[in-house]
Amino acid sequence: MSNTNKGPEIPTTGTRTKLVPSISQFLKDNSSLHLGGDEDFHAERRKHLEVFGIHSIPKDKQHPIGEVEFTAIRGPHGTIPVRVFYPKSGEEHRKKGEAGALVYFHGGGYTVGSVDEFENGLRFLAEESGVQVYGIDYRLAPEFKFPVQLDEYSHIIDWLQTSGGQERGVHPSRVSGGGDSAGGNMTAAISLRRRDEGKTPLHSQILLYPEARLPFDTPAAAENNSGYYLECNGIFSFADHYLPRGTPPSYKYISPGMQYKEYLKGQSCAGVYTSGFDPLRDVGVEYAHKSREAGNEIVWRHYDGMTHGWLQMTAWSDEAKDAVRDVAADLKKFTYS
């Protein structure tokens, strides 16, 4: 068992203290921005792009990046747009064919979002870690339901572990997966599915405030039900968008956090990051606890004064940048140590 597993015990629920001022101010300045709010999800798609889109962020708040490549590959359900962030800090690894790669599936309840809205945070993550980051514009629900998204995720992993990675200086054994919220859910799910299918595993997992299961019975779902960007009750609408009829919410690739710890054994190392003012807080903490109990190498970091979505808030919050630095440090250690 790794030293990571011998660290402080991971609880089953998280805590919160006081919302950090920079995040509180951002929420006040963008009071109409909600995820899972009362408005139609099409309006939420538009609003998120208006606030978080890289083209909407002032130039002096855009994080530098060595190079950005816009490409696409043919997937099992059609063309998959891919945006690659090549960090200057990882250029030597790339030249030697030893670079790490992170396949990133963004959050948004499977329904909202695009790489445009995550580019700024992903640039920062790439440069801080020295790892290439591959932002994926996967097919959104409800137009496309489970398992379309996981099919695309696995296809991208296969591509990067072979020809796609080879062309970009990626070492085939250094392909990791990551995501926030619904993207964290899909990362945990694809890790399990690839293990079950006998496919080459992910090198590591990065799970930012993941929706490990539906948060209907946790303290966080009550404490943070509304008013902190992600609206807890709206999560159920997103789940309805994602789940086809006949697939129960408890299914192993839908709710990894509901599975017995014995089933969670034998996975790659993972970083799990949770926030005090997030309705998903406790399902993320619970998943980290259960996964470590299963014997997996887990790094868990909790930000008790933060809310959901801080990867996208680095232009407005130094605390958000600090949190992403922590993620980057873990990713760098996972990849190159």
Rank of each mutant, 00 (worst) to 15 (best):
G130W: 03
R213N: 11
K199C: 08
N225M: 04
P215C: 12
S226T: 15
Y209Q: 13
L207A: 09
I156N: 01
Q149T: 14
A221R: 12
N185D: 09
R194E: 11
S191C: 15
F216M: 13
A189S: 15
V148G: 02
T200L: 13
T218G: 06
E128A: 15
A189R: 01
Y138C: 07
D196Y: 04
E152W: 03
R194P: 04
D196V: 02
T218V: 06
G227R: 05
N185Y: 09
I156D: 10
R194V: 14
H171W: 01
R194C: 05
D196F: 05
P215G: 09
V170C: 07
E211D: 12
Q205Y: 04
I206K: 01
P147Y: 08
Q161K: 14
T162A: 15
P219V: 00
V170A: 00
E127L: 06
I157G: 08
D151R: 10
I157K: 09
L207D: 01
D180W: 01
Q132H: 07
S176H: 11
A126I: 03
G179I: 10
S226Q: 12
P142W: 08
E167N: 12
A212Y: 03
G198F: 10
V131N: 05
G169P: 06
G198A: 06
A126H: 03
P219H: 07
A189C: 07
S204E: 08
S191I: 01
E167Y: 01
A182C: 14
T162S: 15
G169L: 04
D196L: 03
Q132E: 13
H155R: 14
L207S: 03
R174S: 02
R174N: 08
L125I: 13
I206W: 06
R195T: 09
S181G: 12
Q166E: 15
L160V: 10
A220Y: 06
D158W: 06
K145R: 15
E211K: 11
L214Y: 14
L125M: 13
A222C: 10
D180C: 10
E128V: 11
